[in-house]
Amino acid sequence: MNLTLKIWRQKSANVKGKMVDYKVADISEHMSFLEMMDVLNEQLVNGGEEPVSFDHDCREGICGSCSMFINGEAHGPVKNTTTCQLHMRSFNDGDTIYIEPFRAKAFPVIKDLVVDRSSFDRIQHAGGFISVNTSGNTQDANATAIPKHDADLSMDAAACIGCGACVATCKNSSAMLFTGAKISQYALLPQGKVEAKDRAQNMVAQMDEEGFGNCTNTGACEVECPKGISLSNIARMNRELLSGSILG
């Protein structure tokens, strides 16, 4: 298939960027979106131009590296799918495709489609951990019985790969789905109870400090999340924060 690509080009963090048009020809419908980008970059390099920078790593939908806002949606038009798992059969011959970086003040552009998502790391550092005795006498995790229902919900929350699609797609650039998932995965388990009181407060405080917007419960994050993280995690975070701050 032949496509017209409108891609955000920005040389570095401090210079202005702009949308630039490119043509690619003979794209196979079986290619992944990133392979199509590889074809474009090969074409650019052969023509003596700077290739388009974009994040990628595992290319099997589990690392959270790839991003891209494709035709107005994070990771493109297919639900529960990362950009690397998106295939060109989701597009038609002759299509014009908009490709932009994930946009948020807390995700500054480093170059082209690459954004700095270290704000997520800092939220995680603020409370996304548990204290474990590592002296060699660590208790076997399976020694603590956990209801199946709680374990399942915790695993569902832990499926978050921290890609940032929730922030990119939210009209307010809110990071509450990410933070809610990271708080929930611990809040649901007995091992997470030790730091529970402060965890939500500290992680939310860091989230606010990073400059993410406020959540208005549109639910767009849940729809666009490639891992299907549920909005109920945001409600659980709200409960955790309220009980932590009201009960002290």
Partner: peptide
């Protein structure tokens, strides 16, 4: 505050794909 959280707007943003008009 929310408008301040995204300084550069998207060239194409398909809000109707994932959230209701009301929200």
């Amino acid at each position: 505050q929310n408008t301040q959280a995204r300084e550069v707007k998207y060239a194409k943003y398909k809000g109707s794909a994932n959230a209701s008009w009301m929200s």
